[in-house]
Design a protein around this nucleic acid. Sequence first.
DNA 1: ATGAAAGCGCTAACAA
DNA 2: TTGTTAGCGCTTTCAT
Lengths: 339, 339
Amino acid sequence: MPNVKMSDIAKAAGVSHATVARVIHKNGYVSEENRIKIEQLIADLGYVPNRMAQGLKSAQSKLIGHLMLFSPNMLFAKISYAVNQSAIRQGFHVLTLTSHKHMHEEESLINELIGQRVDGVIVTSNPFVPQELILKLASLNIPVVMIERTRDLPYVDQVRVDDHNGSFDAVRHMIDKGHRRIGYIGRLPTLPVNDVEIHRFHGYIDALKSDHLDIEDALIHQMDEYSVEDGYRATETLMNLDNPPTAIFATSDVFVCGELQYLYQCGKKVPGDVSLVGYDDTLSALMAPPITSVGLSHEKIGEQALQLLMCRMADTKAPAQSVMINTVFIDRQSVREIH
Amino acid sequence: MPNVKMSDIAKAAGVSHATVARVIHKNGYVSEENRIKIEQLIADLGYVPNRMAQGLKSAQSKLIGHLMLFSPNMLFAKISYAVNQSAIRQGFHVLTLTSHKHMHEEESLINELIGQRVDGVIVTSNPFVPQELILKLASLNIPVVMIERTRDLPYVDQVRVDDHNGSFDAVRHMIDKGHRRIGYIGRLPTLPVNDVEIHRFHGYIDALKSDHLDIEDALIHQMDEYSVEDGYRATETLMNLDNPPTAIFATSDVFVCGELQYLYQCGKKVPGDVSLVGYDDTLSALMAPPITSVGLSHEKIGEQALQLLMCRMADTKAPAQSVMINTVFIDRQSVREIH
DNA sequence: ATGAAAGCGCTAACAA
DNA sequence: TTGTTAGCGCTTTCAT
């Protein structure tokens, strides 16, 4: 009994399909008698409206596209999940498309989304999506929201993370515990969109300055990639300094993995010998020992992204909005008090 | 210039929309002259066919639904990614829906998928999807493939993981390195679908038997949940035995996190004091130290799932197929040689 | 080589 | 209170 359609219900109920439509949408007048009968029939025959037909008619697919960058980082899996949930809550479904950096597949992916006539597009943390493609979407009146690595573009809304504060608070935490020599492991700001790296770095610098601490180049490591290996290497260099740091702040939990691997090898304890703070709060809870980290609230991010999308659907030509999401400092006691 | 449609191209080219359709689908005869002109117009105006209209007409949405269970485990993020990639390669898009255990949202989620008239459904590792819902899909002639936690249902194909072997090989590896007392940390087989737990457990048992080793209840811990905490607790109990194991096999990398946290606390070294092997190969590479683990090949799993879906689309009434995917043993030297 | 026309399943304005 | 009707954008058959 595949593919029951409105006319099947109508026929079975002895009415026109317009009447069936009325009971489905609960608008217009329908006699109590017919309503009951039709509702019964819908349940019995398992009728589910065809979204493609609805979409074609209404020019609303109720689909939104989510363009992500491939990344082994659990953070994006979490954001993806949050976006999906928020979308469902608003009656939308999400088509998730992932591109790889430097593979220039974005264009065809975006065309797919246009083909589906998505009602909106979310671009998460993908610094490689060319600006023209975003503008193309906007010119087609398809609402676009960018998450995390955002651009200032007309009619394109942004959900940003307050990285400066997140970073500042983390480093302040270390300073407050008595640390004076704090290492920094981050990523080089060499991507097309770099706000994230720059803000995290300035958060570190500003925290040091706020306590009039020296900024020492030897303590600052900006690596090529967010990777375990780079975290390992940076830590190795830091710990081999004549005067190694007592604490290290890393801008990603992935770096933390590398830090711990190095420290494990040379038998140094956390936080006994070195104190650590990570960023993302993805892997830090799972580490031995668990590591204090700066968490992002995925739910809020997803929620806001959908919110902005809905607003823009309502008014495509409203000025671009930018929402800042706070980070959440998660203390897991991986920073030791020193005197 | 939003929403260019076929008739716009037709009008601009001074032909009927049927001719435009011909050049798009490269079928039927079109004069060279017109083809050039139309192709040019399509590029210039940025025409992209409306999938909803195509779908309505062809009764093929080119969408597949992916029903997952919410899980903090990275494994499912990876499978999800692999499924998406394989789908794209076959010209499909994926609607990913995630349900929470015990929330009984599966029914409405499946109705959403029916509403979208998805061409197929993949159910990944979700033991809570009621059997009737799966059967409902099958009865609507919507191909269904189950991944990892599968059921024997008519017309429902399965992609399974060779957990018995995966587990067997891992434990054999420990035995070959000279270990005689090997702890087991797994999950209690209390889910609606339990093959996974049972096979992993028997893999362990059979490996021990293959070397005529004793099976000791005290070494076997079947926990309530795949969680860091349960891994921690089980390890604590194991290590406090009068005669603790020299090696521990865990059926999930999540357990490994807990193991390492406990061992870190009491200053025991891996593999110096205890040898470890995990399962999933998700977190094990990130641990300090990196842990040997049984990996699943997500790509193969995704690829096979799509393959089976395509086959079933071609022949809905073919007998159900079950494909077994091999695990991959990843040696990271976390098992010590003992004499 | 090209066009006309029907129809996919639905919505909504208009008539009755 | 209900039915009729005209599309939404596309594919495809059948004429021409």
